[in-house]
Simulated assay, not measured.
Amino acid sequence: MSSGELVVERDGPILRLWLSNPGRRNAITWPVYDGLLRVRDLVAEDPGIRVVVLRGAGGEAFAAGTDIRQFADFETGEQGVEYEHRVGRVISSLLEIRVPVVGIVEGPAVGAGLALAACCDLVVATPDAVFGAPVARTLGNTLPPAVVARLRQRLGAGRTMAMLLTARLLPATEALTAGFVAEIMERDSLDQQVDELLRLICRNAPLTLAALKEVERRIDRDGPNADADDVLASVYASQDFRSGVAAFLEHRTIEWEGR
Score class of each variant (00 low, 15 high):
residue 15 L to T: 00
residue 97 I to W: 08
residue 114 L to D: 00
residue 156 G to K: 08
residue 39 V to Y: 02
residue 6 L to K: 03
residue 242 R to T: 12
residue 216 E to Y: 12
residue 183 E to Y: 01
residue 129 A to C: 02
residue 72 A to M: 07
residue 184 I to E: 01
residue 100 P to N: 15
residue 239 Q to I: 13
residue 76 T to E: 14
residue 61 A to W: 08
residue 126 T to M: 01
residue 173 T to N: 07
residue 171 P to C: 01
residue 53 V to S: 06
residue 224 P to D: 09
residue 182 A to M: 04
residue 174 E to V: 05
residue 30 W to D: 09
residue 27 A to I: 10
residue 113 G to P: 09
residue 68 I to W: 14
residue 186 E to H: 08
residue 31 P to M: 12
residue 216 E to A: 15
residue 175 A to H: 08
residue 221 R to T: 04
residue 250 E to H: 15
residue 219 I to M: 13
residue 235 V to T: 03
residue 41 D to I: 04
residue 43 V to P: 05
residue 72 A to W: 00
residue 201 I to W: 07
residue 163 M to N: 02
residue 225 N to T: 15
residue 88 G to S: 12
residue 115 A to S: 11
residue 105 V to Q: 00
residue 139 L to N: 04
residue 141 N to Y: 10
residue 44 A to G: 08
residue 179 G to D: 03
residue 22 P to I: 03
residue 14 I to C: 13
residue 203 R to T: 07
residue 31 P to Y: 08
residue 46 D to A: 04
residue 104 I to C: 11
residue 158 G to I: 01
residue 158 G to N: 14
residue 107 G to K: 08
residue 50 R to N: 06
residue 213 K to N: 08
residue 137 R to K: 11
residue 215 V to S: 13
residue 73 D to P: 01
residue 196 E to R: 15
residue 224 P to F: 04
residue 175 A to L: 02
residue 171 P to V: 05
residue 174 E to R: 09
residue 155 L to S: 11
residue 203 R to C: 05
residue 64 A to M: 07
residue 7 V to L: 04
residue 84 E to D: 15
residue 168 R to H: 12
residue 186 E to Q: 13
residue 54 L to H: 01
residue 50 R to P: 00
residue 99 V to N: 05
residue 168 R to Y: 02
residue 18 W to H: 10
residue 94 L to S: 00
residue 94 L to A: 02
residue 81 V to R: 15
residue 76 T to N: 06
residue 177 T to A: 11
residue 117 A to G: 04
residue 109 A to I: 01
residue 144 P to D: 14
residue 239 Q to W: 06
residue 144 P to F: 09
residue 140 G to D: 05
residue 256 W to T: 00
residue 142 T to G: 12
residue 32 V to H: 09
residue 65 G to R: 01
residue 68 I to L: 04
residue 171 P to A: 04
residue 60 E to P: 01
residue 159 R to P: 06
residue 82 E to F: 07
residue 106 E to C: 05
residue 170 L to S: 12
residue 20 S to V: 00
residue 47 P to G: 11
residue 92 S to D: 15
residue 212 L to C: 10
residue 55 R to W: 03
residue 48 G to P: 09
residue 110 V to I: 13
residue 100 P to G: 14
residue 195 D to S: 13
residue 4 G to A: 08
residue 99 V to R: 05
residue 29 T to E: 06
residue 5 E to C: 12
residue 238 S to I: 00
residue 69 R to I: 02
residue 63 A to P: 03
residue 49 I to V: 12
residue 121 D to C: 08
residue 42 L to M: 06
residue 97 I to T: 08
residue 75 E to D: 12
residue 120 C to K: 02
residue 128 D to R: 10
residue 5 E to W: 09
residue 2 S to H: 14
residue 27 A to W: 09
residue 215 V to E: 09
residue 58 G to Y: 09
residue 20 S to F: 01
residue 117 A to L: 02
residue 40 R to Y: 02
residue 60 E to Y: 10
residue 84 E to K: 15
residue 119 C to F: 05
residue 64 A to K: 14
residue 249 L to Q: 09
residue 104 I to M: 00
residue 202 C to A: 15
residue 130 V to I: 11
residue 104 I to V: 15
residue 154 R to D: 03
